[in-house]
Design a protein around this nucleic acid. Structure first.
Length: 821
DNA sequence: ATCGAGTATAA
DNA sequence: GTTGCTACTCGAT
């Protein structure tokens, strides 16, 4: 008998020759040994819900007799459970093997009278194991059992009798990052069936290596082998020697691993990097992801795209842009078009490829270290596997967080909606947030307040949950009046005597976030990790609201969603009314309100906030977001009224906060964005409209003289659907079609870059790839009339510079003239 | 002019 | 695979 303590890092299951499932927990002991624990004592199960008043004994014995091929029920336990807070009696049906769950569930529903439904039939076995046992990846477990022999790449394997979760967590994983370079013919995307891998770079703790199969002279400390097949073997060998806890890369799900897998097949060489010497596999359930047995595979691209998307200000999620944003470091310059030519030359230029390759692996390694704390936090919060969690989107993260919490509430996890229920739900919408229409113009001395986590705090304060939703007013919170779909005013009621599952769970999230924010405030840290963590908690809490309205969600409830936004409108409108008594209200959006101080003091503003807070229920709070010296609000295009969600603020430290403007939108040219930003800066910081006008005039002149580089004229637009599905062909679709015709691989999500060139006719016919343009081919007049002027026109008009110009006909050309056209 | 499709952003 | 709100361009009519 051996007793050990270890941190589980990766978990999966296999099937014995007797057809039983065995959980395998791969991890590290406290004394840093790599180990594997086998747990044969966990059986898959699901719930069968009997109809009211059904004869449970009789049904149970019928279920026990269910059998189909080699699938069968092993035992049944009658359990008191809850569904949305209501007590029920459920039958916990154990089956022989995870694959039997859907089979037995279907059979029971089809063939046994008195069964209303089955639930929890789609919870994957490993996830089920973690939840049931209370085991959290990266958090210590104690286990006892006997040490047995297995041909795994670990110190020892424990055949576990007992396993229990602990508290302490691992703070560092030994990571190995890698990147591959492949051969490519000119202007062609590499084809994994034909084009070989030419080099692989690895980067870890005190470890770097780059392998290639042509011998050259280079400063890079490279490992030379004789062929691609030796290259792959050397890669495998390096991983086995390094013994990483975790393998990471950038876009390795989408490129490096699929490529390696294909090339190892072509070369007939094994890619057996798994701890059990298995090869990496495409995950059948999560398409486009690659799993390695025993070693979490973290494709950082997935994490960046799913989780950091909103907190990072990047043009794209490419390794280059993300590295620059997070590390202030860029990739090495390399013309990817010439990579094949360099390789074929057989000369020492190949060293450049190796340097470039190694740098990519290094950047990934640095990114991993930068993000690892966040990734670990998220993993522990959600309580699922590292390589699962980094591939989840917010909706899934919230759902799995909730699923894990059901155990504490004895709740049965609701089923996902079927196709017809989902379509039914999709047909229903509800009203969202309130947005105040600002009066255009320049303002001095503003105070901006916002409700701390508005929707989550509303959910907590009013116990909003599908389970507390009640027909009667008695012992209930009454939502503000809202208009239902038939146009009738209604109220919804939420019982406050029942314990709301989701409100309680969200309370936990908010409390955690408050703690993080306190640290940031106290230490005045501009720590990216703390900010991101706070962001993660906020976004997960906010997504919990979104989930109520999402048709595919398990805890969908339109009534809850509609009540939450109704409460939101109620509280913000009430705050606006109150503010109006003493201040001018400038803008408001969902959870924020801005006031102009006028002849009042900051303290007056803070007193207003205090008053509001005294009238709020517990857990809701209005906070000071910041004071601003100046703020600019603009009018809508061709209209005198103010534009919503579009403003620029200058704080007391001279920082600009810009929202909604073209300057921060991707699908405008760099030039227009830069000009708009500069104009906002001159007006807000230097307070000189004339200077801003001069600046724009100069840019327009430069454009006409073509002294602005072509690169500034590039417009970037993302493809949001398959090209063949487009009804209307805009410039970016046209360019995309041309690219397709030239054999360039593009699809949903590709960001298309184009430049509008000179000539006659509609814009799409003049849109070209930047690479296919001459430096001066761009259409200066297009950029003046369709990019620069629209971007700055309403700014100037809003500060009264060319008042009245809007009412004149043909104002475009007039403004054009005004700028010296 | 006006409209629908399409893209993107704020919260 | 979170929601709803808003503003804008381009192409079609």
């Amino acid at each position: 008998m051996a007793d050990i303590q270890f941190y589980p890092i990766d978990i999966d299951y296999t099937t014995t020759i007797f057809g039983k499932a065995v959980i395998r927990l791969f991890g590290r002991t406290l004394d840093n040994k790599t180990i594997c624990c086998l747990d044969r004592n966990f059986e898959p199960y699901f719930y069968a819900i009997p109809e009211e008043g059904a004869d449970i004994e009789k049904i149970s014995s019928k279920i026990m007799g269910c059998k189909e091929d080699d699938s069968f029920v092993t035992s049944i336990v009658i359990e008191p459970k809850k569904t949305l807070g209501n007590a029920i009696t459920a039958l916990k049906v154990y089956v022989n093997h995870p694959k039997d769950v859907p089979i037995m569930s279907r059979l029971i529903k089809e063939s046994i009278d008195g069964i209303k439904d089955t639930q929890e039939t789609d919870i994957l076995f490993v996830r089920r194991y973690l939840i049931s046992k209370g085991i959290t990846p990266l958090m210590m477990c104690s286990a006892s059992g006997t040490i047995i022999k297995e041909d795994f790449n670990v110190s020892f394997v424990l055949d576990t009798e007992k396993i229990n979760p602990g508290i302490e967590s691992i703070d560092k994983l030994k990571v190995l990052c890698f990147d591959i370079e492949t051969y490519a013919s000119e202007k062609k995307y590499p084809d994994s069936r034909i084009d070989p891998i030419i080099s692989i770079a690895l980067y870890g703790d005190n470890f770097k290596k780059v392998i290639t199969w042509k011998k050259i002279n280079t400063n890079v400390d490279a490992t030379f082998v004789n062929s691609e097949s030796e290259l792959i073997s050397e890669f495998v060998k390096s991983i086995k020697e390094y013994q990483p806890d975790c393998i990471s890369g950038y876009f390795t799900d989408g490129f490096d691993f699929p490529y390696l897998i294909e090339r190892s097949k072509v070369n007939n060489v094994s890619l057996n990097i798994g701890i059990d010497n298995s090869q990496p596999k495409h995950n059948k359930r999560n398409l486009g992801s690659i799993r390695i047995t025993g070693i979490p595979h973290v494709d950082l691209f997935k994490f960046v795209r799913h989780v950091l998307r909103n907190s990072l200000q990047v043009e794209s999620n490419s390794l280059n842009d993300v590295s620059y944003a997070l590390l202030k470091e860029k990739k090495l310059d390399m013309d990817m078009e010439s990579i094949g030519r360099i390789w074929d030359s057989n000369n020492d230029d190949i060293g450049k490829i190796l340097e470039y390759n190694l740098k990519d692996a290094e950047l990934t390694y640095k990114l991993f270290n930068k993000l690892s704390q966040d990734i670990f936090e998220l993993t522990k919060l959600i309580g699922q596997q590292l390589d699962d969690v980094i591939r989840m989107q917010f909706g899934q993260l919230v759902e799995w967080y909730l699923i894990r919490k059901t155990k504490d509430f004895n709740e049965i996890i609701p089923n996902k909606p079927g196709y017809s229920e989902k379509s039914e739900r999709l047909a229903h919408t509800y009203q969202g947030a309130f947005v105040y229409r600002p009066k255009p113009g320049l303002y001095e001395k503003l105070a901006v307040f916002d409700f701390r986590s508005l929707y989550p705090s509303i959910i907590i304060a009013h116990n909003i949950d599908p389970g507390t939703l009640s027909q009667s007013k008695e012992n209930s919170y009454e939502s503000p009046e809202l208009i239902d779909e038939s146009g009738k005013p209604v109220h919804y009621y939420f019982n406050y005597l029942k314990r709301g599952f989701i409100p309680e769970v969200i309370k936990d999230l908010i409390t955690r976030r408050s703690r993080v924010k306190e640290i940031i405030k106290k230490e005045k840290k501009d720590d990216f990790i703390l900010h991101a963590r706070s962001n993660i908690l906020k976004l997960i809490a906010n997504s919990a609201y979104g989930m109520f309205g999402y048709a595919g969600a398990r805890w969908y409830s339109k009534e809850c969603a509609a009540s939450i936004t109704a409460y939101g409108r109620f509280y913000i409108l009430r705050s606006i009314e109150k503010a109006k008594k003493d201040f001018e209200v400038v803008f408001s959006d969902t959870d924020s309100v801005a006031i102009a101080l006028g002849n009042k003091t900051k303290q007056d503003a803070l007193n207003f906030m205090k008053e509001i807070n005294e009238s709020l229920p517990p857990f809701m709070e209005l906070e000071l977001e910041n004071f601003y010296d100046r703020g600019l609000f603009v009018m809508k295009k061709n209209e005198l009224q103010g534009a919503k969600k579009k403003y620029a603020l200058l704080d007391e430290d001279n920082n600009l906060k810009i929202r909604g403007f073209e300057a921060i939108r991707r699908n405008w040219s760099y030039l227009a964005k830069e000009v708009q930003l500069k104009v906002l800066e001159i007006i807000l910081k230097d307070n000189s409209i004339e200077e801003a006008v001069d600046y724009v005039k100069n840019i327009i002149n430069d454009l006409r003289k073509k002294s602005i580089p072509l690169e500034r004229a590039i417009i970037r637009t993302q493809l949001r659907k398959e090209i063949r599905h487009y009804e209307s062909i805009g410039p970016h679709v046209k360019v995309a079609k041309n690219m397709m015709a030239n054999g360039i691989d593009i699809g949903i999500g590709t960001v298309i870059r184009y430049v509008v060139t000179e000539g006659k006719g509609i814009i799409r016919d003049r849109a070209k790839l930047p690479e296919e343009c001459n430096e001066k081919e761009y259409d200066a007049e297009y950029y003046i009339n369709n990019q620069i002027i629209p971007a700055v026109k309403m700014i100037f008009e809003s500060v009264g510079y060319s008042e009245g110009i809007l009412t004149e006909s043909n104002e475009q050309s007039k403004l054009n003239k005004f700028f010296g056209g």
